[in-house]
Amino acid sequence: MKLKGLSKYLYVYKTQIIRCFTYKFEVYGNILMQSIIMITSAFFWRALYRTGNPVAGVDVEGMLTYIIISAMMSVLLITNVERRIENSVQKGTIAMDMMKPLNIFGIYLVEDLGSITALVFQNLLPIFLVGSLLVKVPTICSTEHIPLFAISMLMSFFINWLIAALFGMWSFTAVNVDALIQVKKHLIRLLSGSIIPMWFFPDWFRNILEALPFVYIYQLPLDIYIGKSSGDELAGMMMIQFVWLIILLIAFAYVARRATKKVLVQGG
């Protein structure tokens, strides 16, 4: 019985991967654009680090590794769940999704996983190659950090996905959530350390950020990767990451139950 449900999800997963391989041009366009962005930021940080001295305890090599890994992580952290929910609510197809013999959020999660699987080949590996050839090979600071990075990355994926899903569920009441999705995008873009690491921020600002979930999406896994934090400090950070995951999971379960109860179908 349980296995049967799983094979249905697998089918959704497979369909999504096939769908993602439809547009070839898009793939090349993405690779080109992301490479340009990565090389631009490499130039940017090289220019800032012209004196050669480490700033905030990180040298230019660490910073370059940081941006390459950050670019690769951003591929794994692409979510479509918020747009998917919004579209389904606006067009009324949410009713069809809910009639399927699967949990709708399960479907959305599996769809996102399918897209990411396709993107690993379409984006992540090309970015890695371009980064390694043109900027530097992003090596991890020590092999001991590999499992820690993997665990932290997994938690970061779910934190990111749950935040996206929570914003998406807003459309059950607000219907049009384009702007809210933008709010979320900017918060994550600027407060998670994906572009500018928070070491450069003043202490008071960093303390605020450490209390919010965003830094646990990009900054913490990246810190582990380049060896910026270790020991007790790292263990503490990972604990907070775990706590945020649990908080978001509870919030998600609560909101999901309430939201799906009062679905508003616009004549779908």
Binding site: A174, D178, A179, Q182, H186
Partner: peptide, 20 residues
């Protein structure tokens, strides 16, 4: 709600960008 969202999201983007 969308209007309110834009009023928050765009200024946030630039305030944070400028702070950076």
């Amino acid at each position: 709600a969308n209007l309110a969202g834009w009023m928050i999201s765009n200024p946030i983007q630039f305030i944070l960008g400028f702070a950076t």
